[in-house]
Amino acid sequence: MFTHVMVGSNDLQLSRRFYDATFAALGGQAGEMDERGRLIYRHDGGRLMITKPIDGKPATAANGGTIGILAASRAHVQAWHDAGALNGGTSIETPPTLRPDGVFVAYLRDPDGNKLTARCQTAA
Rank of each mutant, 00 (worst) to 15 (best):
D110A: 07
F104W: 05
R16M: 06
F18R: 06
H81G: 03
D44A: 07
A59H: 00
N87K: 08
A61D: 02
H76V: 03
K52R: 14
A21C: 06
L12Q: 00
I92D: 14
T66S: 08
S9W: 00
D112K: 01
L86A: 13
P95M: 12
H81C: 10
A72H: 12
R47C: 02
A106F: 09
G84C: 02
G68K: 04
A83F: 07
H43S: 12
T94E: 14
D20H: 03
D20L: 10
A62E: 07
T22V: 11
R47K: 13
H43C: 08
H81F: 09
Y19Q: 07
D110V: 03
D112A: 08
I67M: 08
V77S: 10
R42F: 03
V5H: 10
S73I: 02
T97A: 13
V105I: 15
P53Q: 07
V5R: 02
I50P: 02
R109E: 15
T66R: 07
P58K: 12
D101E: 15
F23T: 09
G28K: 04
A25R: 13
R16T: 06
W80F: 08
F23Q: 09
P111Q: 00
A61Q: 05
L70S: 09
R74N: 02
Y41W: 03
T66N: 13
L86N: 13
G31E: 10
G45T: 12
I69Y: 09
L98Y: 01
G46R: 05
N87L: 03
H43T: 14
H4S: 14
Y41C: 05
H76E: 07
